[in-house]
Amino acid sequence: MEDQRTHIISALVLHKPGVLQRIAGLFTRRGFNIDSITVGTSEHADIARITIIAKGDERVLEQITKQLNKLIDVIKVRDLDPESTVKRELCLIKVHAPSEQVRSEVVQYASIFRGRIIDVSPETLTIEITGASDKIDALIDMVRSFGIKEIARTGPTAISRGTKTI
């Protein structure tokens, strides 16, 4: 088996209806497995940036990139080099924290991971954390014992370091 590396694919696509369906449909039809996909606006109003995290050997990744490129609404596709890429994910974690004791522990963990408390209720605390996916995993592990009510993760988005653009 070839190396099943995690790849960060960044694509610029036309910001119009149906684009996501074309891309998602392509993955299903060609049997590509993806870990996450994030979509949002880019520096141009009519162009969206899509970040796809996918595992696979070089052959599979080459096919994903080429098939994406074939879509008329896709302008550019790059398999970003993880060494020279900044990758960030946003995660919201709602933790069960009914007691003073638990609350202060959760707040401490959040601050160690440079997270913030963005919502409080008598029963819960909601943490906002941004960072690499493994850092988020680590925080989730730390607060799991208190009881996690809900997690919302965006999946990573990424951009090349320095002056390089795709």
């Binding site: 149906g18 369906q21 074309r22 449909g25 039809r29 879509l71 008329i72 609404d73």
Partner: peptide
Amino acid sequence: TLGITIPITKH
């Protein structure tokens, strides 16, 4: 029609 024909058209 668009949804049905996405996988079988060039565009």
